[in-house]
Simulated scan of single mutants.
Amino acid sequence: MESSSSKNVPSNANESCPGVGSDTAGKSDACAGCPNQTVCSSGEAQKEDPAIAEIGEKLKNVKNVILVLSGKGGVGKSTVSTQLALSLAHQDENCNVGLLDIDICGPSVPRMLGLEGQEVHQSNEGWSPVYFEDNLAVMSIGFLLPNKDDAVIWRGPRKNGLIKQFLTDVIWEELDYLIIDTPPGTSDEHISIIQYLKKAPVTGAVIVTTPQEVALSDVRKEINFCKKTETPVLGVVENMSGFVCPNCACQSEIFPPVTGGAAKMCEDMKVQMLGRVPLEPKLLLSCEAGKCFIAQHPDTVTAKAFVEIVGKVKAASKK
């Protein structure tokens, strides 16, 4: 069976789309009523977007592109993205890290790194990212909004255009890791980023969930999305896995894993469990202050969990 990536399914296609690379593109029963039917049947849609080759060239000095995904909003995906980037940069000052926020409607990264109000500088070479540290570069639509409270009310094509621009126009230079924080779900932005990165060094995806079945059910869909698009799954992070008391450091379950939690899901779907991150007030304060948690609180349970997760991500990465 052809994968979605090899078929090159348009972002606004229906679920039964045969793909623009199929012999039945624009001609099958599933194509009836599709807005892409005419262009698919003409063969025009089979032409590869020239931006794909351009992006591959622009990112040729990036060793590892890592997507951070979640099936559901509110599970702490941006927390994991920012702390993963901060931890990689903190552990080795010679490790160059980039953090790209493609959550167009809800950019959290500038806030979580204490970079609100920073501006992106433009030159003939392109956009210069905002630097948190000498070895941590950041890009987000949050830097481009005149007011941080402005709502981004964009349709898919405009979102996709900005994502393409982030990949073609930002001067990322040489990076050991480019962490991409995505919005929740499996919609336009996800299809676009996978297609644009076709010729880029994608190492894989880190998927974030919480222990409840309502989150796990959506994460299963995210894992299947990765399989269909031939995106390697580096593993799953179970966030909010218990609660650490700030006074006595005892742990208790806030969200009981009634169906076995992420560990059981990983076992069933044959993916790696990267680690469990408990709810800890100190982590919230670190995120609010834009600080690296493992540097601030190295002896906590949560810091040790992040160190374990970072270690597994490094082990799966290209050196």
Rank of each mutant, 00 (worst) to 15 (best):
P110K: 01
T82K: 04
A89Q: 10
C95K: 07
D92Q: 07
Q83L: 14
E119D: 05
E119F: 03
I104T: 09
A85E: 07
L88S: 05
D103T: 07
A89L: 09
S87N: 10
S78I: 03
A89Y: 12
Q83S: 13
G117I: 12
D103G: 11
S78T: 10
S78K: 10
R111G: 11
C105R: 02
L88C: 06
E119Q: 13
V120P: 09
A85Y: 00
G117R: 11
P107Q: 05
G117M: 14
S87F: 05
S123Q: 06
A85R: 08
V80F: 03
E116F: 06
V120M: 06
E93V: 11
V109I: 15
V130F: 15
H90P: 00
H90I: 00
E125M: 11
N96G: 00
G117V: 13
L88V: 00
T79K: 04
E116V: 14
W127D: 09
V80H: 00
V97P: 08
S78W: 05
M112P: 06
P107K: 04
Q83K: 12
E93G: 05
Q91H: 04
N96C: 01
E133D: 10
Q83H: 14
C95Y: 01
G98T: 11
L84R: 00
G98W: 12
P107T: 05
C95Q: 04
E125T: 08
M112H: 09
L115M: 12
S78M: 10
E125A: 14
F132L: 15
I102F: 06
N94Y: 07
V97R: 02
L84V: 03
L115E: 09
W127L: 11
W127H: 07
D103M: 09
N94R: 12
H121G: 00
D103P: 00
I104C: 08
D92P: 05
S108Y: 13
